[in-house]
Design a protein around this nucleic acid. Structure first.
Lengths: 195, 195
DNA sequence: AACCGACTAATTTAGTTTTCCAGTCCAAAA
DNA sequence: TTTTGGACTGGAAAACTAAATTAGTCGGTT
């Protein structure tokens, strides 16, 4: 055994699991199926992961890491705080739509409410800290002087919760997704809340 | 028969149903129980309402009417648009906490997802139009000139969806309800979004 | 016209059996 | 020694059934 081989197998399991979770979701994908897709026996999987949930979390982590990289690159192209925040919202939202597993976390599509909620909160904590850093950077370099620095954490929370609450409501109500409206909402949220 | 007698029976049914729905919810309250509480036979109820759902909707309507009256009185005490909007949010939210049936609609606690979502959307449409009127009045009397009048409907929607999305998220996360934080959120939402 | 009791059709619940699947164990292979 | 696979297990979920509830109807009574 060597470490890189070990890593390769792990990656293969995650890769195959991702495809299956993507299509069928956490509940309707079995460990036997993941093992079969890898050409291995189920018990082999348990040498690399302690549980099915852990496999799923690994898949989610990979997807989120990918998504966050994309979002980060786009955000960094922006110069102003409002440009950054607006870009963040639009790109993150766009990304969730193209990643079924992440979509399920963000929109609480699950069979295990408790676990799903925990994943959502964990993800949100990370996003909040990222948005907060964007805000603090802007604050430190002299933008948005009209806001108290100690209000920034609450502002970050409000921005995210408000934005996702709004998107969710609009999706529920309209039953269709409107890219332009989304941009308009992100615009209002950022410019009004933050300029 | 006379009309006022008819109305009295209707009211009695709604009143008894309200108490039962309050305690047990829509699903776990039976028409037999409502009838028994009224001292009438079940079939009598069907002279006044065509279905159990209709009784429930009547109860909701009564509760919402009461709540809206309270909110309206409080809002009218306020002079400024931000004062009005902040008061609206806080009072409406406070009201939902004291009315179990309204609470269930607002927070989507239900056994019938589709019906519950419809009730929620219907309620929100009404609230949106009320908030919009507050905004338009303020606009017409010269407040908030920095906003396009045609943006007001979207602003009303954002305010409500954002506020409720945020409150929901905070309740989920904190698992407890903080009156002061709620006020701070309403404050930021209104002052930042609207001042 | 307002009401009731008895009825029905349909849904819900409760109980049982069967199937499935996450996770373990042990032996064999590498 | 480390990795793997096949067989196994316990517990949970699915499928099915029988029994009980309950929304809504109807014919008759006051």
């Amino acid at each position: 055994m060597n470490v890189s081989k070990d890593e390769a197998v792990r990656s293969e399991i995650i890769y195959q699991a991702q495809k299956l979770f993507q299509q069928f979701g956490l509940k309707k994908t079995t460990m036997d199926e993941i093992a079969a897709a890898c050409g291995k026996a189920k018990s082999t999987l348990y040498h690399y992961f302690t549980s099915k949930e852990e496999v799923f979390d690994a898949v989610i982590e990979i997807e989120l890491t990918k998504l966050r990289k994309i979002v980060k690159d786009k955000v960094e192209e922006q110069k102003t705080i409002t440009g950054k925040l607006k870009t963040y919202m639009i790109e993150f939202q766009k990304g969730t739509l193209s990643m079924a597993n992440v979509y399920r976390i963000v929109n609480n599509v699950s069979y295990d409410k408790k676990a799903s909620k925990e994943r959502f909160v964990r993800m949100m904590e990370f996003e909040k800290s990222y948005v907060l850093r964007i805000m603090e950077d802007a604050y430190d370099s002299g933008e948005c002087r009209s806001i108290d620095k100690e209000d920034l954490p609450l502002m970050a929370e409000l921005l995210l919760a408000g934005f996702y609450g709004t998107v969710k409501y609009l999706i529920e109500k309209d039953d269709k997704y409107d890219q332009q409206k989304l941009e308009r909402i992100a615009e209002i949220f950022t410019s009004k809340l933050f300029e």
